[in-house]
Amino acid sequence: MIRGIRGATTVQANQAEEIIKETKKMVEKMVEVNQVKPEDIASVLISVTPDLNATFPAKALRLIDGWKYVPVMCMPEINVPGSLAQCIRVMMTVNTSLNQEEVEHIYLNEAIKLRPDLLGKD
């Protein structure tokens, strides 16, 4: 079955090192809790808010062992007034045997505000 796994995080500053560090941390958590292997991944879409342009967050995924051939694309997030700033969002499309309600979406740092209804799900 093909499923989408969501992830989001924020950074404190528009700095390449922090963007890469926080993106890698989020994606590694997404694959860990959902038991995803690189060969299970169809593609990964990453969006960033307009205030983040120091680097492509997709570079973080190239630091993960076995991810050389995983298709990744970055894009800007819609600039909605009052929305969460300095935010990196991920949509990972994977092949999995998990039921939709079993998929664990990962929200870190200030991004926990985005989907409080999904937090605390065991």
Score class of each variant (00 low, 15 high):
24 K>A: 14
8 A>C: 04
121 K>I: 00
55 T>N: 06
48 V>H: 04
1 M>S: 13
87 C>H: 10
104 E>A: 02
93 T>H: 12
42 A>I: 15
63 L>D: 12
96 T>V: 11
113 K>G: 05
22 E>W: 05
12 Q>G: 02
10 T>P: 08
39 E>D: 13
21 K>G: 00
50 P>V: 09
58 A>P: 02
24 K>M: 15
106 I>E: 03
60 A>N: 04
110 E>F: 04
26 M>S: 13
49 T>R: 07
7 G>Y: 05
10 T>I: 11
122 D>P: 06
90 V>T: 13
122 D>K: 10
120 G>N: 11
83 S>C: 10
60 A>E: 05
14 N>K: 01
49 T>Y: 07
34 N>G: 13
107 Y>R: 13
94 V>Q: 13
119 L>D: 06
10 T>W: 08
40 D>E: 10
37 K>G: 07
52 L>G: 08
9 T>Y: 03
81 P>H: 07
104 E>W: 04
95 N>W: 15
19 I>M: 05
91 M>D: 09
31 V>W: 01
1 M>Q: 07
100 Q>H: 05
116 P>I: 11
57 P>A: 07
4 G>E: 15
81 P>W: 09
105 H>R: 10
39 E>A: 14
32 E>H: 04
32 E>C: 00
84 L>S: 09
27 V>W: 01
72 V>I: 14
30 M>Q: 08
114 L>C: 01
28 E>P: 03
18 E>G: 00
28 E>G: 06
4 G>K: 15
30 M>F: 09
100 Q>Y: 08
55 T>Q: 01
30 M>A: 09
42 A>D: 14
76 P>Q: 13
17 E>S: 10
53 N>C: 01
109 N>C: 00
48 V>G: 04
57 P>M: 10
46 I>R: 10
19 I>K: 04
44 V>H: 14
86 Q>V: 01
43 S>P: 00
120 G>D: 08
68 K>C: 02
11 V>N: 09
37 K>V: 03
93 T>M: 15
49 T>I: 09
110 E>Y: 10
22 E>F: 09
59 K>D: 10
43 S>N: 04
24 K>C: 03
30 M>Y: 03
45 L>I: 15
53 N>Y: 10
117 D>E: 13
